[in-house]
Each structure stands twice: as structure tokens, then as C-alpha cells.
Design a protein around this nucleic acid. Structure first.
Lengths: 229, 229
DNA sequence: ACGGTAGTGGTACGCCGTAAGGCTGTCAAG
DNA sequence: CTTGACAGCCTTACGGCGTACCACTACCGT
């Protein structure tokens, strides 16, 4: 039997041609919407109106999908100008990184995953190290500060996104926690939970900045006072 | 045909009976040895000389295995006495946490995984909050400091363990990196890599402590100087 | 008209977590 | 001694995963 077009398959012209770029864009959308765990090759292909194995023509394997997605997301990073004073530069880059990783909550987890790396990550590193160099730190101190800053930014963001519940759910859980637990044994935890309940919602947004400033002030002290052991 | 014991099955008396404790111990051993990704119910059962589904009699599901393992590992945490001065207390608890999470590198990843929580984690929280309270911090500042400290500890450890290579492999990669990349574009990164190559191996061990002290000093400054916004 | 090749689909393999139910040995009650 | 309940383990099966391997279509330059 002869058929006009292949039965059961859309005419190719009706759908946009696949490409590495389109695959990665779809991967980012899927991860943003449903989380990293929901990003499977089959579901990804499905969202593109295609079968799973077709992706492998444009992409070597899933790791490349993840790496490419991370790369694209990290390219949103705003690096400060080289003329920016070091403290402000570090602040800018840390806040920008936190904002980006907050927009794409799966990205922080990916940054911590062995084997997935990104060229853009190196530019980030260069930006931080450049600012630290401007601060006139000895190499050992600069190294420690770099690792500490990265750890804090990624760790904090990852910690935030590891809380799966909405604000309303958290409130419920917190109240239940206060009712259930023995306040005598955990007085400070109780107070902490209570404080979270009464504080406004955007306090959490400032928490990152507050911790960052503590760290930067500490770095400033170490710079001025101590010899970088 | 009548057989003395069930064919193909060991006499029950020959192997120690399974139990939740034994399952979790085996899970920790497996994760310590081969990583979290290698911890599957089938492999776990295999290491106990048993079939996968037998585990489900002692454990509700895999999440309970993970949670139980995390719980056991976190119980190694040493909490400082309530009389310890706040700065030293925070230092002790952070170093202890880092040591524990370093011994069991999969645990940090688990701490960041939504849905896996632990009672012991709450004791940790209480310890940190108690020390912060002794520091006489206003609630908002204490909250920020707590989250920042946790983020730093877990983030740093997770970051360390996301580097899958041995020290020797890293050295090779670093040298290749120096040879490959354009030193003109990334001068500070190049210097950083070079410094890592020349510094002694245990510098990395001190990095955590150095970053921690920066943070604690910053916290001390915020405590003395600023009003907790 | 024809072979080549870029792009897509189909099938299959070995892994995963786990739901449902079967089998065996032990032990207390009748 | 018999019987039945039950704890403890195993078997089978299902749907999902990443991906190796190959068949197929559509279009290309010749």
C-alpha cells in the first residue's frame, strides 16, 4: 500500500526541527516546572513531540543534557566590572548567583553533582578570584575565601530548595511542631520556629544577604588583621 | 520428593536474622564504600545474602533506609556543653559536623534531599541555636546566622565530595588545565590552580576551618556593632 | 534514477523501586 | 499430636529509567 506520508507520523514540516538548542531549552523548562527528578529522556522527548531515542542524535547522553542546561542557566550570571571595589564585586556576584540558582532550583543540585561541569562556571570562578585579588589577599587566604564563598552561595540556595513545601504548608508544619514537641527539651528551636511564624515572608529573602555580609565582614577582618596562615 | 531443608535456601539458622538495624548498617557500609548511587535495594539485599523484597519486611521503603542511615550517622555528632562560650561552641559543632559528613560523604547530599529528615538533625539545630542565644543575638540575626552556618557547613562538605577524583587525578587535571586554557583570559584562575599544585595536600583540610572563622568573626562584628535589622 | 546521509522511530537489555501474594518454619492453643 | 496463626523470606510482575543497535524515511547532489 502506498501512503501519502508515513502513517502515524506528522509531516516533518509541521513541527520545528529538533536541535541541541531546542532539546536543552525543553530540558530547562521541564526541570523548572517539575523538578530535576522529573527530567527523564522519555519525558523530555515527549515534551518535544518526539521519541526518546531521537534526542540522542543531537545529544551524546543525558549528562550532556544536564551539563548544557546548567551552562545555559549559568550564562545568566552577571559578573561585575573589573573596576568594582572588591567587596562590592563579591557581593554582586554572590547575589547574582543566588538569584540565578533561585530561578532554576535544580541548578544548584547540578553544580554539586560530580561529572557535570560547565565552562561558564570557570568564568564565575575567575570573577570571584579577580575580586579577591583586588582585595590584596595572600594566596592561601584567597583560596579559602573562594571556596567558602562558593560553598555558602550554593549551599544556601540548595538548602532553600530542599524545603519542598509552600509557605502555607510550612506554617502548618511549624504549628504542629510547636504543639507536638517538648518545648522543655528544645527551647531554642521552639523560639526559632515561633519567630519564623511571626516574621514576614520576605525575611527569608534577606537571610542570604545577611549571611553573606557576615562572611564578607569576616573576610575584611582577616584581610586587615591576620596573616593568612 | 522430600528434602531435609528447602532446596536452594540456606538453613535459616546459618545466617543472622535480618533486622532494621542490620539493614541500615549494611546500607551505611554500602554507601560509604560505593557511593549513594550504588545503594539500591537489590544490591543492599545482596550484601546481606537476601532478596530485595525481604528488606521490605523490616523497612517501609527506600526512603526509610536513607533516613535511618542519615539518622545513625548524625548521631555521631558531638554537641558542645551548654557552658561553652558561644563562639567556641559554634566552632566545635561546625567542625564536628564537617568531620561526620566527611566520613560519610553521601550524608551531606541526603541532608539536602527533600523528604529525608531526622530527629537528630533537630538536636543539632538546637545546639546551634542555643549557642547563638548565648551570644545575645536578636532573633532575626540569630536566624540568619543559623541558616548561614548550616548552609556553609553542608555546602562546603557537599562541594568537597562533589570532586570525584583522587588527589593524584586532580593534579593531572590541573596541569592539563594550565596547559590548555588561555592564561590571558583567566589569569586569576590560572594562579589559583597553580597555587593548589604547590600547596601541601592538607591545605584543603584547613580551608573549611578558615572559612568558618571568617564567618564567625563576621558574626561577632554584627553582634557588637550593628543593630539586627 | 540513484546512492548517500541526516534525522527519526522501534525494539530490546539491564537496571531501578515496589505491589501482591506464595512458601516455610516456629510456636501456642486445642 | 494436630491445627492454625503468623513472622520472615522469596517469586513474580509492572512500569519506569538510560541507552545500544538497527530499520526506516526524506531529502540531497549527482
Amino acid at each position: 500500500m502506498k501512503t501519502g506520508t508515513t502513517p502515524g507520523r506528522d509531516p516533518i514540516v509541521l513541527r520545528a526541527p529538533l536541535s541541541r538548542e531546542r532539546v536543552i531549552s525543553a530540558a530547562i523548562e521541564l526541570a523548572d516546572a517539575d523538578g530535576l527528578a522529573a527530567l527523564s529522556m522519555r519525558r523530555l522527548a515527549n515534551s518535544l513531540g518526539v521519541e526518546a531515542m531521537s534526542l540522542y542524535y543531537h545529544v551524546k547522553n543525558k549528562n550532556e543534557v544536564l551539563g548544557g542546561s546548567l551552562e545555559r542557566v549559568l550564562s545568566e550570571l552577571e559578573l561585575p566590572l573589573a573596576s568594582t571595589p572588591w567587596k562590592q564585586a563579591l557581593r554582586t556576584i554572590a547575589l547574582s548567583a543566588h538569584a540565578v540558582l533561585d530561578r532554576h532550583r535544580w541548578a544548584a543540585a547540578l553544580l554539586m553533582t560530580p561529572g557535570v561541569s560547565s565552562d561558564t562556571q570557570v568564568r564565575w570562578m575567575e570573577g570571584v578570584l579577580a575580586a579577591l585579588a583586588r582585595a590584596g589577599l595572600p594566596p592561601s587566604l584567597a583560596d579559602h575565601a573562594y571556596h567558602a564563598l562558593d560553598s555558602y552561595v550554593i549551599g544556601f540556595t540548595l538548602w532553600e530548595s530542599s524545603i519542598p513545601y509552600s509557605a502555607a504548608e510550612i506554617e502548618g508544619l511549624a504549628k504542629e511542631f510547636l504543639a507536638t514537641m517538648s518545648v522543655d527539651e528544645l527551647p531554642h528551636t521552639a523560639e526559632h520556629v515561633r519567630w519564623h511564624l511571626t516574621s514576614s515572608g520576605d525575611e527569608g529573602g534577606r537571610a542570604f544577604e545577611a549571611g553573606l555580609d557576615m562572611f564578607l565582614d569576616g573576610l575584611d577582618m582577616a584581610r586587615a588583621g591576620g596573616s593568612g596562615s
